[in-house]
Design a protein around this nucleic acid. Structure first.
Length: 198
DNA sequence: AATAACGTCAACCGCCATGTT
DNA sequence: TAACATGGCGGTTGACGTTAT
């Protein structure tokens, strides 16, 4: 039997999300939750596939998501986890509070993958004479343990119940283009605008 | 200044696992 | 137990921005 498509394709919008769509999604999830992603767009009045809504929420709108560049520690952690877990991005993301699998996957494919051969070369050539100036900041077992304990202590940050504005508004979003979505100011505006309404 | 080449990343697609009826 | 619905994951794509020529 042929599986039905995940959603009715006709009339559904694709591509980048607009600030207005973000607000609708935020407000709907905040007030009704997301027990059923497939039904959500219809209930919220969004012309989007449920999967698309879920992805947008998980990767960008969910409270606790970190924006901005990865730290050196995070990058090293991804490299180490990738050595043991492979391309299991969600498993890796579970160890990096506030980071999403999609984001980690992107960072790996665009930055870390290229860096890895160089690091391997370095590591091999320096195995006999380790240096504190090496790329990784986690060169000793002690620092590794310390880092892991710090990370694990933050594990619950990514929980859905993290405080979030009761109701979001378009004020903070409208004036920004998609190219600055990841700008801190954008998210600050969203947050502040939402607080005005609550 | 124009444009080609390259890099980045948000979003989509399709498959698989799990839950429900 | 089978059939179906839904969620979740990883691979891939395409739009957009940046850099090089």
């Amino acid at each position: 039997m042929v599986r039905a498509p995940c959603c009715e394709k006709k009339g559904l919008k694709k591509g980048s999300w607009t600030p207005e769509e973000d607000l609708i999604l935020i407000n709907h999830v905040k007030t009704h939750g997301h027990k059923n992603w497939r039904a959500l767009p219809k209930l919220a009045g969004l012309l989007r596939c449920g999967k698309s809504c879920r992805l947008r929420w998980i990767n960008y709108l969910k409270p606790g998501i970190k924006r901005g560049n990865f730290t050196r520690e995070e990058e090293n952690m991804i490299i180490q986890l990738h050595e043991t877990l492979g391309n299991r991005w969600s498993a890796i993301a579970a160890r990096l509070p506030g980071r999403t699998d999609n984001e980690i996957k992107n960072v790996w494919n665009t930055h870390l993958k290229k860096r890895l051969p160089q690091q391997d070369q370095k590591r091999n050539s320096k195995q006999k004479q380790p240096s504190s100036s090496d790329v990784s900041t986690l060169t000793t077992a002690e620092s590794l343990d310390e880092f892991w304990s710090q990370v694990l202590s933050l594990d619950d940050l990514s929980d859905d119940t993290t405080t979030f504005p009761a109701t979001a508004t378009a004020e903070g979003i409208r004036s920004t283009s998609s190219s600055v979505y990841h700008n801190v100011d954008y998210w600050y505006d969203v947050y502040m605008g939402a607080q005005e309404l609550s």
